[in-house]
Simulated scan of single mutants.
Amino acid sequence: MSDQSEYPSESIGSDNGLRPLSNVDDLSLGNPSNNDLSRIMNRAGIALANGFPLDDDEDEEDVDEDYVSVDQDDANEFPYWFRRPPTHHRTKLDELHPFVQLLSVSNVEDCIKVENAFPEPERCSRDKFKYRLTRCPELSLGLFTLPLLGEGEPKPRPTLVGHIIATRTSEPLVTDRSMRLPDNWQNERWSFEDSQAVGHEEGGSTIAIHSLAVEPEHQGKQVGSTLMKAYIHRIREAQIADRIAIIAHDHLIPFYESFGFESRGPSKCQFGGGGWVDLVLEFGPEPQE
């Protein structure tokens, strides 16, 4: 499923360390003062931040990826000055000072707030969020905003503005069974009905996205596309699945096709009243060098 303005709902919808600011240790500049270093860098056309040169090679080509990806364990210690000022024309996304990180069960209330962007029948419930963020949090991703602060200002809690929530399935497409909340999931690792798995299937080769949602006030700011691009990159690089599957309404098909998803026709899913289309992104073999 998906955000209705940016294209992402419950049934739509790298390294994860901080990016180094520079390779300044490799520079052969003797032992210049801060002023000397600034002067040298300015002559070379290199922007400075806190006395360190910025490596901007990637920014000019991938303007949508001007965020920092951090691990859940690092989130509380995320330093403000590691987030680099954009070198391209500022966008509405830049104004959020965004970063992405994995979600956990501690983000359930945040996710509920974001999910309210969708019609009630298409929203993920609180219990489903608890289940998915407890059973397979590594398959979730959130985009947060954390404004840059002045010296001495207290650091607020990051605000979740968009999320992707998913589970694994052994089926090649999203199914109603994969979207269901298993009975007694808190006490049973696996749940079956009529010899078929219900909910998350560990080891399943398909990542089934159940929710791609963006808060209404932040729709139209490339939040959904930034999240999807980061999510696909993470799953592809980790090589943990053969494909990503999602269901969406007709008007969102072009959005997903722009990321490589292919339409597989009307979905059998009846979640939220039905009317979905199956979309699949297959991960083929790695290209030969």
Rank of each mutant, 00 (worst) to 15 (best):
Q4E: 11
S5H: 15
S5G: 09
S9D: 11
I12Q: 04
G13D: 12
G17V: 13
G17F: 13
G17Y: 07
L21S: 08
V24Q: 14
N34C: 05
N34K: 07
R39E: 15
G45M: 03
F52I: 10
P53W: 05
D55V: 05
D59V: 04
Y67S: 05
D71P: 00
H88L: 07
H88R: 12
H89Y: 13
T91E: 14
H97A: 01
V100Q: 03
Q101A: 14
L102P: 00
D110N: 09
C111P: 08
E115S: 09
F118V: 04
P119F: 07
R126E: 15
K128H: 13
F129Q: 03
E138R: 09
E138A: 04
L139K: 08
S140Y: 07
L143E: 12
F144A: 00
T145H: 09
P147N: 04
P147A: 00
P147F: 04
K155Q: 12
P156Y: 06
R157A: 05
T159V: 14
L160E: 05
V161T: 08
T167L: 03
S170D: 15
V174L: 08
D176I: 03
P182D: 10
D183G: 06
W185G: 01
N187Q: 14
R189C: 05
W190R: 10
S191E: 10
E193Y: 02
Q196L: 14
Q196P: 02
E201F: 04
E201Q: 15
S205H: 12
V214F: 06
Q222L: 05
G224Y: 01
G224R: 04
S225M: 02
M228K: 05
M228D: 01
K229W: 11
A230I: 01
Y231W: 08
H233K: 14
R234C: 02
R234Y: 13
I235Q: 06
E237P: 13
Q239N: 15
A241E: 06
I244D: 03
A245T: 03
H251N: 08
L252Y: 10
L252I: 02
Y256S: 02
E257V: 00
F259V: 09
G260E: 15
G260V: 07
S263H: 10
S263Y: 13
R264A: 02
G265F: 10
S267Q: 04
F271R: 07
G273N: 06
G273A: 07
G274A: 02
G275Q: 03
L279G: 07
V280N: 07
E282K: 14
P287D: 12
P287R: 06
P287C: 05
